[in-house]
Design a protein around this nucleic acid. Sequence first.
DNA 1: ATATATTTTCAATATATTTTGAAAGTTCGG
DNA 2: CCGAACTTTCAAAATATATTGAAAATATAT
Lengths: 168, 168
Amino acid sequence: MKLTEAKQQFIASWGAFGTHWGINRTMAQIHALLLVTPDPLTQDDIMDQLNISRGNTNMNIRELINWGLVDRVLLTGERKEYFSAEKDIWKVVKQIVKERKKRELEPMLKLLDQLEEVEGDKRDKNVKAFVDTVSSIKKLGKQADKTLDAMIKAEEGWFVGNLIKLFK
Amino acid sequence: MKLTEAKQQFIASWGAFGTHWGINRTMAQIHALLLVTPDPLTQDDIMDQLNISRGNTNMNIRELINWGLVDRVLLTGERKEYFSAEKDIWKVVKQIVKERKKRELEPMLKLLDQLEEVEGDKRDKNVKAFVDTVSSIKKLGKQADKTLDAMIKAEEGWFVGNLIKLFK
DNA sequence: ATATATTTTCAATATATTTTGAAAGTTCGG
DNA sequence: CCGAACTTTCAAAATATATTGAAAATATAT
């Protein structure tokens, strides 16, 4: 397989992959393109290579910057902005985990705290089923939260090494 | 907060949560409803409680059954089918992990194997950047695959206990 | 077998999300 | 300050996804 074709396949399937995880196709594709491109690209480069409009490109680059996955790069003597993705995949994963934890897991845990305090007699099986479900989700969620915190701080080598030991 | 209100909040936010993870709102809501309801429900019960059409209800129940999260229950002497969700949250999590691994991670790893074998001179920095990115994603993906396999087999207590130790 | 209850399908419709592109805004060298 | 280069915005259009509901298929009791 030629490089051009391989890149295209990578970009396309990274995009499809993203849609299964609540990330829009274009954002994932731009990210994929920047991941496999050694030098920083301009907005126009990205537009041309992915065949997407200026507005769309701009919006999704910004979103990638918000997620901490892409950086603005200013080349000396150049007026245009260039963009470049973090290439260390372990850092990328940690960054995504960090953001999703903050945006989704933490608010969910806050809500569960409130829901656990529902009024009513615990001997009523409806109340009991509700409280039991909420509590057990909360318990597992809190554990996941701690585990992810540790992961975010960890070095790749340390993490992988320990997991291998743990699961052998 | 009253039980009815708490249930509604739980269902609504579980639905919203689902949409961030590539699961459709209705499917997540049906799952949430069954999670907090002690007794099995019929399709009509679900339609009424969530205000959704027969077709939609049917499709999404079926999908939940495919995912292994909901079971058909036949009550003796009843003509109608009843539905009930697995209440053990650890089992639910493992089941979701198992399915997503099979549907998403495994095909992705297969693709990366192919893409790694791109033609071209490794001294070309474009080729190098591509191969490096693909290889490192593959490496981390393989590790994740193993870790998730272990998790799927694990008991909750064992798993949580070990993680606590690991990350202390 | 027939009638009736129940489940499933799927084309049409509604809703939600993404994308476009032109206009407005900004930056910066001269 | 002016004007060209570049970036951002956002209403409208396109696309993708979810939902409906009535008709078809299936299952069950008599």
